[in-house]
């Protein structure tokens, strides 16, 4: 295993807002590396710095031994970048767009036509090649965008939220395709705020929260490290905090319960980390019953990446997402995205 990408102590501020506080990542060649985190965690900014669209305020980025700061053009040659919002020219046909892309990457002229035919076939776009992009569906556009990213046979494919806004079917196609690319030896870096996506695809994952890496390992390892099972319960559909705290104290006294966290984002539900034992649910139920506490819902599960996130930040990914929406200023972000 060789290191494909090494990011050390990356920092990036937009005026007052610190988008990336301190991010260090080691990405091995030939793997799918997932960067997971809620909106506003700094995923896109990290990728934009990696793709030389932005200059970091501090830190280093090396792509296959080439510094993104001192030799951005060398890095650009190695990377294929598929941005979050598909930016295509609706007045061009798919083939014309790829021809433009080929010229921007200086593909030798004789190889351009066969290579374009190849990627078109690869992504099932052949019959659409000579139609205007304006007539494409969302899924087709994403596939064309992928084709453009792959055209110059980059060593590393970088995808920002590759399946956001796609229907389930297109999403499965993209997943399938990314797995196939990895099989052929390509290194893939993707960001996502979908747990399932990272869980299903990534060999290694880094979880980002508010501009820092809070965990980085294989998804399996991260989940195993947490250990035990998860129990989520609600006393009522919306539980008063006093009542939730009462249950929390009660359940914490049980020797096989490791932790009890109240989740205000879900109507003060309780998230328990417990020893994996078959009678856990029954015991929880009877304990609450004896104390005269109600029980609305109760569920047991193996730890997920969401639990990894929860353990590190005290809130679920979904809650972080919702909270982030309130904090965000879409107009300011659009400006940031445009500024380089």
């Amino acid at each position: 295993m060789t290191t494909a990408i090494s990011i050390q102590n990356l920092q990036k501020r937009y005026g007052e807002v610190t988008a990336v506080k301190n991010v260090s990542l080691e990405i091995q060649s030939g793997e799918i590396f997932g960067i997971l985190g809620p909106n506003g965690a700094g995923k896109t900014t990290t990728l934009r710095c990696l793709c030389t669209l932005m200059q970091p305020d501090a830190g280093t980025i090396e792509v296959m031994g080439i510094s993104a700061l001192s030799n951005p053009r060398g890095v650009r040659q190695k990377l294929g970048y598929v941005a979050q919002e598909v930016a295509l020219d609706k007045l061009l046909t798919g083939r014309e767009l790829l021809e433009l892309q080929a010229a921007l990457y200086h593909l030798p002229r004789p190889s351009i036509t066969p290579r374009i035919d190849e990627v078109l076939a690869l992504l099932g776009l052949t019959e659409w090649a000579d139609r205007l992009i304006g007539s494409y569906s969302g899924g087709l556009k994403k596939r064309l965008d992928l084709a453009a990213g792959l055209l110059h046979q980059p060593d590393i494919l970088v995808l920002d939220e590759p399946t956001v806004g796609l229907d389930i079917e297109s999403r499965t196609v993209v997943w399938q395709f990314l797995r196939q690319l990895r099989q052929q030896g390509m290194t893939i870096v993707l960001t996502s705020h979908y747990l399932e996506e990272v869980d299903a695809l990534a060999d290694h994952v880094a979880i980002l929260d508010r501009g820092t890496v809070i965990a980085a390992d294989t998804p399996t390892h991260l989940k195993h490290q947490l250990g035990g099972d998860r129990i989520t319960l609600k006393l009522r559909e919306f539980t008063a905090i006093e009542e939730a705290e009462q249950a929390q104290q009660l359940l914490t006294t049980l020797p096989w319960v490791h932790s009890v966290v109240i989740n205000p984002g879900q109507g003060n539900s309780l998230n328990l980390v417990v020893d994996a034992r078959p009678d856990a649910l029954n015991l929880v139920q009877s304990t609450l019953h004896q104390a005269g506490l109600p029980l609305f819902s109760l569920a047991q599960s193996k730890p997920s990446l969401d639990d990894v996130y929860l353990a590190a930040t005290g809130q679920t990914l979904m809650d972080a997402e919702l909270a982030a929406i309130g904090r965000r200023d879409p107009k300011a972000e659009r400006k940031q995205a445009m500024r380089r």
Binding site: I66, L123, L181
Partner: peptide, 22 residues
């Protein structure tokens, strides 16, 4: 979708010269 997307990776040598000058 069976063609190769990616030419068999050339061995990566971090110290290899980067790009010919533009």
């Amino acid at each position: 979708m069976s063609q190769s997307v990616f030419s068999p990776a050339t061995p990566v040598n971090p110290s290899q010269p980067t790009l010919p000058p533009a």
